[in-house]
Simulated scan of single mutants.
Amino acid sequence: MSEPRRVPAPARRGRAVRFVAAFSALLGVAAYVTLHDVTGSMGPPRCVIGSGQNRYEFTPEQASNAATVAAVGSARGLPERAVTIALATALQESALRNIEHGDRDSLGLFQQRPSQGWGTPEQILDPVYASTKFYEGLEKVPGYSRLPLTVAAQKVQRSGFPQAYAKHEPDATLLSAALTGRAPAALSCTADATEGRPGDPARVRDELVRAFGARSAPKTRPGAESERAAGAPGSAAGGAPAARVELTVPVRETRVPRAERGWALAQWAVARAEELRIAEVVYGDRRWVADASSGDWEPVRGGAGTRGTDGSSVRLTLAR
């Protein structure tokens, strides 16, 4: 009988290394699952509108751009249908990303071309400007709100693939209902307000005015003292908790009901929270908190720092 074949030492070592690597990977997966079960964390920040079959999930970048497109349309007094057409167009042209490339010299959310008179590259890469130019074109289309979405979009865009806009209409409809305020508390987003730079009140004010107009300029007031423990990130010098900064955004009378206007402002703030470092949004008796694992709107339960609003304003609290 022949002797058992000996496995060379390098092979045995290779197997051991592979076993250790596989076991380490398994531990990593188990740790992630445990963290998810305990905290509800879903990893990178995300935004969601709708549920079940009528659900659209997207990134904070896409949410921020969608909110800008919707805000510009609302500020122009355009109907929700116009916003749906604009959002479906941007979904097809750029997937709601402000890209710096495209076919020939196409740029930005709507892939507008400087050579075709849409503006300079710098202007087109400004989402407010690009959205404004799209709506200006749409407003010149007679009866656009009664046309099929593909027809209305094509009359503005002159695309080589006009039927491609159709597949985005369901998602665009969900987005426009939320971001114009017709569907209250419909937008859920997760964001991290504990790390990174503090929120800049001047920048938030500027972005609000650019998107919604001067009537939406917020007022700044120092908020209550931070509830964080002394010495935590965001604390003032000497270990004392830093005062939080609150912006009160007025909800002015417009062509739409005040509640819709208020929710349009509130959900714009949630969609742009990651970029603008907004930690909390309160409108009426609903509250959104950036660090909440679900990213959902919750009822205001009372207590320090959690009071609601009377519907005439939206309250934003910036990250520290």
Rank of each mutant, 00 (worst) to 15 (best):
R277M: 02
T120K: 12
G223P: 02
G102W: 11
G181F: 10
H101R: 15
T173G: 13
T120D: 07
H168K: 10
T150D: 14
R261L: 01
A217I: 07
G52A: 01
D171P: 01
A177R: 15
T309M: 01
V7K: 11
S145F: 03
R158K: 14
P60C: 03
G295F: 06
V72N: 00
P142A: 08
A271Q: 02
T173I: 06
F212R: 05
A63T: 07
R261W: 06
V256K: 13
Q163C: 01
A31L: 14
R15G: 13
P44W: 06
I49G: 01
L26S: 15
S115H: 12
R228L: 12
P222N: 08
E246K: 02
Q123D: 11
G234A: 02
L187D: 06
L276R: 08
L187S: 07
L276S: 06
I49V: 15
W297N: 05
S216I: 05
V314L: 06
P218N: 12
N98R: 15
A237P: 04
L276N: 06
Q53D: 14
E225Q: 11
G160K: 10
L318W: 04
E227A: 13
V20P: 00
E169M: 12
R301D: 13
G102V: 06
T89E: 02
E260K: 09
Q62C: 00
P142M: 02
L276I: 04
P201T: 07
C189F: 04
E253L: 10
G199V: 10
A153G: 09
Y135K: 05
A31N: 03
I85H: 03
L316I: 01
P162V: 08
G102A: 13
G239Y: 01
A172V: 12
S145C: 00
C47N: 03
V17I: 15
G284D: 10
L125I: 11
E207C: 04
A224E: 15
L316W: 01
R228T: 07
G284C: 07
L175N: 13
G52S: 03
T220R: 09
H36P: 00
P60I: 00
T180L: 04
D103T: 12
R15C: 04
V83K: 04
Q154T: 08
R197C: 02
P218G: 14
I124R: 13
Y129S: 07
E246C: 02
P114Y: 08
A166D: 14
Q116F: 14
F110N: 10
L276Q: 11
Q157M: 07
A217Y: 05
G43M: 01
I49R: 00
S64C: 03
D291A: 15
A232D: 12
A237F: 06
G303V: 11
V72G: 03
V249I: 14
R197H: 08
T190Q: 06
R12K: 13
V270R: 02
L316F: 03
S226E: 10
V256Q: 11
A230I: 00
K167L: 12
V17P: 02
G117V: 15
K167M: 11
A264V: 04
T254A: 09
Y135S: 00
G137Q: 05
